[in-house]
């Protein structure tokens, strides 16, 4: 394909890797990155280190703004896509602008997931997905002595480490929805539980959170089915769901991500999905998997770009790196032990 104007929605590792691969392979292509976050590309997996004070905000950023200029990549930050029309190949922005494309890569990543029973407490719980979230945590941790972590996704473990390094007390509720999208099971739960306890984390065993109340400016009262406690802040860590609300009614198949084949193609010609927002078919497993993590996302971004330009590279990953679950497989090959 001669890519005349490729629009990339998203500004994370998959999006940026796609952009630079496109530029390398198609020097004449017009490339536009559109991102609703108003800041440039950073490494999200370093956010816990930022909170711990191990790295500065500047250390997070990957490319200076000049990089995009030098590579003739139009970077549109703080601008949100609200609709995509695959009939007319148009992206519609929140500010009522229409951007036409010849090729499209959707790499919007995910957004924090809060299980339905806990959604009533959403306002009292912090998450950690963006730099903005990390800044809120950093500020909050200046004033509080203790944190309760609910959930147990992969980010929660590095976040716990960060909070412990600041000398704060950490409580942990391994929720039934923990480890999402990896299925919660006894074996995994007790292994993680043990590791947390070894590090000085107080793991609270409960089935249900009954009540969360703001007790004061810097404390929240928590009542579970077995215990009451007061903590400085509560973090919800239940993994991510694909950030693809803008694609509703677009005609794209979306399950736990945008459904794509092993070449990251959607059902529309010239439209690809990559990174955390994609649900990728694995021909050997004969099933779908979702990607988590920085390195995987970059790889998928690269593959999407190459295939958009006419390549035939498969996104399949080594089966050893994939957790096999009932209805979904997840590549966690990057997962470092807590």
């Amino acid at each position: 394909m001669t890519a005349r104007h490729v629009v990339i929605i998203g500004n994370g590792p998959a999006a940026n890797e796609a952009a630079i691969s496109l530029r390398t392979q198609a020097p004449d292509a017009r490339i536009t990155i559109i991102s609703k976050e108003p800041i440039r590309y950073y490494k999200p997996h370093l956010l816990p280190d930022l909170i711990a004070g191990k790295v500065s905000e500047q250390d997070l950023y990957v490319n200076p703004l000049e990089f995009y200029k030098e590579n003739d990549i139009r970077l549109r930050l703080g601008q949100e896509v609200v609709h995509v029309s695959f009939a007319t190949n148009e992206v519609v922005m929140e500010h009522k602008e229409v951007v036409r494309f010849d090729g499209l890569i959707i790499a919007t990543g995910g957004k924090p997931r809060i299980p339905e029973p806990l959604q009533v407490f959403e306002d009292l719980m912090l998450s950690l997905k963006t730099l903005s979230d990390a800044k809120v945590w950093k500020e909050r941790l200046r004033w509080v002595d203790s944190v309760l972590i609910v959930g147990g996704d992969l980010t929660s473990l590095s976040f716990t480490k960060a909070v412990l390094s600041l000398g704060k007390k950490v409580y942990f509720i391994l929720h039934g929805d923990s480890f999402w999208p990896v299925r919660f099971n006894e074996e995994l739960s007790s292994e993680v539980s043990q590791r947390l306890s070894d590090r000085g984390v107080e793991v609270i065993s409960c089935r249900k959170i009954l009540r969360l109340v703001m007790a004061s400016e810097d404390s929240v009262e928590v009542e579970t089915d077995g215990r009451k406690l007061r903590v400085g802040a509560i973090g919800a860590f239940f993994g991510l769901v694909p950030d693809v609300k803008f694609l509703a009614r677009s005609g794209l198949a979306i399950e736990r991500g945008i459904v794509v084949d092993e070449f990251l193609r959607t059902r529309f010609e010239g439209v690809y999905a990559a990174g955390d927002c994609a649900q990728v078919y694995h021909p050997k497993l004969r099933d779908y998997w979702v990607s988590i993590g920085y390195r995987n996302a970059r790889n998928l971004g690269r593959v999407a770009a190459l295939n958009l330009l006419g390549g035939q590279e498969s996104a399949e990953t080594a089966p050893a790196g994939i957790f096999q679950l009932d209805d979904i497989s997840v590549n966690t090959s990057w997962w470092t032990e807590f």
Partner: peptide, 13 residues
């Protein structure tokens, strides 16, 4: 705005 803008008309672009 009252009408959709083309990319060539848009300031944000």
């Amino acid at each position: 705005p009252d009408t959709l803008l083309e990319e060539e008309q848009s300031l944000a672009a």
